[in-house]
Computed example of a mutant assay.
Amino acid sequence: MSYTGWILLTASLVGLSCGLVGVFLILRRMAMMADAISHSVLLGIVVAFLVTRELSGIHMLVGAMIAGIVTALLVQWFHSRGVQQDAAIGVVFTTLFAIGVILIATQAGNAHLDVQHALMGEITFVPWETMTVAELGEIPKATFTLAVVLVIVLASILAFYKEWKITSFDPGLAASIGIPVVLMHYLFMGLVSITTVASFDAVGAILVVAMLITPAASAYLWTDKMSVMLVLSGAFGVLSAVVGYCIAAWLDTSISGAMAFTTGLVFLVSFLGSPRHGLLARMVTH
């Protein structure tokens, strides 16, 4: 595959994975939690590096997942003790992110791990860091990791589709029929964490929020069925990745920034043109 082909494939995997996970963030009204986890996983990545002294491997995903779950636990703990949830999210993620930044500056300064890379990402470097996979040959490490994460996300959605659906819309009903609501919640936080860290090389910690939230928010305007919303959100994520790359090539600008900008364009079109919930449709109805 060509250099451009690997970039487009990697960006599409980011858009698809984030789009699917983002649906449940929107339905559970946890959009800000995506922002929190996308920043706090930096601490998990740094700690994993300090323990292993390796910048790639499964330990990075494990560290990120642990950091994401710790973030969710701390937010829930503060909220249960009277702190407003948005305030709890702001306090927890800024503190954990700051600790990660300090550790990078003081302990990992001589490694290829820096705050700018974690925040912004750089997808143009992805095709150069390769690994050998049986039957596939040399493929970029980031692309392989994202493909594995996508399989995990798809398997989790298919295996627990009924549980995700009930716990997203009515946690009280889910608990009454024996579904482990708390366990499903933290399993979901783990999915958000690994999806976030797997997307670091492509869009970074800040812009991954756009890929997690905006395609799903756009899909929410087009349909009231969760299954259709999942398909639309994944499609919007891939569309944003591909169109964003084309815009970046045309303007000679940041690919990750152009991808995030495109998600905004998709949302704007959805907000205006959705036949049921769009602004134009509401104006015509009234």
Rank of each mutant, 00 (worst) to 15 (best):
E122K: 12
M30L: 15
I69R: 04
Y3H: 13
Y220D: 10
T95V: 15
H185T: 15
I66G: 01
E135M: 09
A11F: 13
L119H: 01
G172E: 15
L73W: 14
G63P: 03
F169T: 12
T132F: 12
A64P: 07
G109E: 05
I26L: 13
A72H: 06
T52G: 00
L8Q: 14
T130V: 14
A174C: 00
L173D: 05
I66Y: 08
L113V: 01
L74Q: 02
V51Q: 03
I247K: 04
A142S: 15
R28W: 05
L9H: 10
I104Y: 00
A88H: 06
G68M: 08
T263S: 12
A88S: 15
F24D: 01
L27D: 13
L272T: 06
L173H: 12
V70P: 05
A72M: 10
Y245E: 01
V91M: 14
V266A: 02
V243G: 03
T195V: 09
M60F: 08
A217T: 08
D252C: 04
S227G: 05
G121T: 05
L16S: 06
L119E: 12
G204P: 05
S227R: 12
T195Y: 07
I104D: 00
G68K: 02
G19A: 09
G244Y: 05
F144S: 13
W222D: 03
H39D: 05
L43I: 04
T10R: 09
F188V: 00
A98W: 11
F271W: 14
L13A: 08
T263C: 14
G121M: 04
Q116H: 14
V197P: 01
S233Q: 02
I89V: 15
K165C: 15
W250N: 07
V269M: 11
A198D: 07
L154P: 09
T130E: 13
H286S: 02
T167F: 01
C18R: 07
I104G: 03
I66T: 09
H112E: 14
A217E: 03
A36C: 10
A175P: 00
A87W: 11
Y186K: 02
L191W: 05
L16H: 09
L221F: 07
I213K: 01
F125D: 11
G178F: 09
L272Q: 06
T195F: 07
M30C: 11
T253R: 10
P275V: 04
A202Q: 04
Q76N: 14
T263N: 13
M184Y: 07
I179P: 05
S199P: 08
H112I: 09
D170N: 15
M60W: 08
